[in-house]
Amino acid sequence: MLQFIAKRLAMLVATLLVASFAIYGALYLAPGSPIAALTGGRTLPPEVMAQIEARYHLNEPFLTRYWLWLTAAVHGDLGESIPLHESVNTLIAQRIGTTLQLVLFASILIVMFGVSLGIIGALGRGAVDTGVLFASTVSAALPAFAAAVILQFIFGVMLGWFPVLGTGEGFVDTVKHLTLPAIALAATSTALVTRVTRTAVREELDREHVQTAVSRGLPWSDVVRRHVLRNAAIPITTVVGITIASLIALSAVVETAFALNGLGAYLVQAAQNKDFAVVQGISLVLVVAFVITNVVVDIAYALLDPRVSLGSRAQ
């Protein structure tokens, strides 16, 4: 177990290194310059330009700049936003909470509805199954931005049940504010999880060991719980994990649509403002979150399936 975690941490570092280089390189190659955003398009005297460039190391060669940024990042300093004159760490810290809450909320919805609908569809055959398939098809065809607009229109404007913009104060108010965004974010993924759950449960139902359990006269509820669902949990966990990891990136769209001050929306905004330090910082945070989610999935997978061992797990 420890060895496995150590291995995965080493992989995390390697992934981050590659990702940071890719992000830094992409932004270096991207058109536009942070100074243009800073000056608002005005032409500055060359000596002032030179001063600014020196201040932000913009005149250094690419690799030197990357190295400077990387060493600072390793020490926990993600740099400074040029347009805002503020530490990137602070800017991220102010927004990460909203994104975490949103992703957590959406994940709960995905697991709750995706898994249960999938199970109902698989066990319920006939009309019930058709209903589940239909609902999941509609839901799968609904991209987050479209879902956002539709939900805002129906539940926010027409029915007035939920606020459509902003984050809210306190627990209840926050939940209220995040309900529609979380649904919009969860829609497509819930459909995917429903489909995978349904297939996994169906497959498990047809397995020989389930037939053994039936042949022994065990109650159907025991057969389903102890053999069908227990075993189907393995593929379901994998897909839920991957889906949740993808929510982190998808949250940008939903946060923008609902005017939530989260990391995703801010990433888009920062990219538009050529606020390179912020884009790099947030991207790095997203990569970390993605990799950590995957490690958690791997561990869960090994816990659920005794045939899978974590690296060379001691007996």
Partner: peptide
């Protein structure tokens, strides 16, 4: 009653590896 009948009739299947739940 059907479950009780099944409990009285034990089946030994051909392929034990497939017929025993691998995760238990």
């Amino acid at each position: 009653e059907l479950r009780e009948h099944r409990a009285q009739v034990a089946v030994v299947f051909q392929d034990p590896r497939a017929h025993i739940n691998p995760v238990r």
